[in-house]
Design a protein around this nucleic acid. Sequence first.
DNA 1: GGTATGATTGACT
DNA 2: GTCAATCATACCA
Length: 199
Amino acid sequence: MSSRRKCPLPKRSKLGSTFFSRDPVEVARDLIGATLIVGQAGGIIVEAEAYRRDDPASHSFVGQTQRNASMFGPAGTAYVYRSYGIHWCLNFVSGEQETGSAVLVRALEPKVGLNAMRARRGLDDPHLLCTGPGRLCRALGVTGEHDGSRLDEPPFEIYACSGPVEVRAAPRIGISRAPDHLWRFGLLGSPFLSKRLAF
DNA sequence: GGTATGATTGACT
DNA sequence: GTCAATCATACCA
């Protein structure tokens, strides 16, 4: 089940709060093919997952806490949390009106700053640099210090997809609650996905 | 207070 | 395939 999606925005259009002020499921889908830069490094988003405010799998499901506070900030905010006490994971706060929804960036095709990413990750293979939410944050230097930052201001730059892309929906990964929603989106056939897009 | 559980990764059998 | 790392949060007593 894949669908072709044309770029809805002008080439190299910078994405800000207007883009993120929509249903996180739509935002996640439309982020596939977009470019994410953090500082001097970045690439093309090839995998993302949506988490809604009232979604049992979402950190926001239990209401606002110290950890998830930035999820309840304005759309276009970064939500960075620690996963398994070890890794950082980067989310884009989204949602039309209600707060508490976000999109988890799961994988990138590295495009710029390859050497900086290699140095941070301690390996060479571009296929392993950013394929996974924890790896991606390590490669880009994203940490808890970025939690609550605006996504349309440095060090973040996010640009719209510059051409048509083939996007596939699949179940989310690594969750135990609400596992059936097809809220994981990936670039069909990309070798930079964290997991294959099978059902 | 204690204990179980992760939106993961890398090392190992 | 299995499993440990490592810690904030949730939940129970």
